[in-house]
Design a binder for these strands. Structure first.
Lengths: 204, 204
DNA sequence: GTCTATAACTCGATAGAC
DNA sequence: GTCTATCGAGTTATAGAC
């Protein structure tokens, strides 16, 4: 009983440490020693619980993907009106990234570095991610409730404006002389600024 | 004389090979052996010409920064009217990235991985990158030629929509079932779609 | 300048004591 | 379950012949 608890505790602490190190340094840059230090244990333990660096990485990557994607799908698949949907998406997605600043760059970087690995291992039956969204926009256009715009462009415009600032964060902070707190404030503003900017452009 | 030419030739071939490998795999993921293979020579030559992996990386990184930045500054500092400036920026910048697909992710990733190193080594007196742009927008707003919008948001909206698709390229191609050629066509469209989208939103 | 061989070192992984 | 010690593969870097 006591062992079980200690076990779970260590297992969990390794995961937390690994997440921190992998998200900061990526698969290629992370060291098992860094993770062990961060977790306050020694290297052998990492292998005892997770066999190899790759297995440990997969755990973290899978968890990261689970955070990165479902939010998108859930909101887009919901039944609320398009303009509200856009506002909700931006707000929720930016909120999630404010709690996980390194998540977007980590995911996109690893997908770029090993696209085949990602495709086979993690990309199963997710082909039609934004088809529903595209159909909804087509309907709005046909009903003359918004301007004619290619849904693909609208979709990636929205995503770009939400995610990119987190990817360019250090560069952006240098360019604007923002500190951590000001950056967070800036992203808080964007929760409403982005929807406003989009809707202003597409409304009739 | 002959030696000099051979020298230059090898030096140059190493740079080209190193650029390819570093941009694809990043500093942490790149191997000196990969670069040597790509250049069709052996590892010792790399050290003969560039001393160390880090020195070689700095060369490539510096060159990458030179491509990534000046285009922005030049156009933004030019005297053309704001709306044309936005159109020109998007077109030129996307064009540059179409020729260097991996450039944005490479630069932003390395800056994120080593922000201090970047700041000290490469960020000298570039603080006011978009101040001029902000001032110009402020003038337009005051002159009632466009809607009231925070210049910082407008600026990063524009940059985000141009750069992000390249960073999310593999994921985007999977989501939309695009092939390489279709992706290029899509980005060609965006050269005009993005300015249209922006101007539609801010014009009065 | 270019190559082969190898030194020096880093890092993931394992053995074995407790 | 946890630790120390160490192995062995892989990598950067150098020595030395040509």
């Amino acid at each position: 009983m006591v062992n079980k608890e200690v076990n779970d505790n260590t297992r969990e602490r390794i995961l937390i440490a690994a997440k921190k190190v992998f998200l900061l340094k990526g698969m290629a840059g992370a060291r098992m020693q860094d993770i062990a230090d961060e977790a306050g244990i020694n290297k052998a333990m990492l292998h005892y619980y997770y066999r190899s660096k790759e297995k440990l990485f997969e755990m973290i990557f899978e968890e990261a993907l689970a955070q990165f994607f479902p939010k998108i799908v859930d909101i887009i698949d919901s039944g609320i009106p398009l303009f509200e949907k856009i506002a909700l998406f931006c707000s929720e997605y930016i909120d999630m990234m404010l709690k996980n600043t390194y998540l977007p760059l980590f995911v996109l970087n690893e997908v770029n570095k090993q696209p085949e690995y990602f495709k086979e291992r993690f990309w199963k039956g997710k082909n039609s991610l934004f088809e529903k969204f595209a159909a909804e926009i087509a309907a709005e256009i046909k009903g003359r409730r918004m301007k004619n715009i290619n849904p693909a462009h609208l979709f990636i415009n929205m995503i770009s404006m939400c995610i990119f600032p987190f990817i360019a964060k250090p560069l952006w902070m240098m360019s604007t002389n923002m500190d951590e707190l000001q950056f967070r404030g800036f992203m808080e503003q964007r929760k409403t600024e982005i929807p406003k900017f989009i809707i202003e452009s597409i409304k009739k």
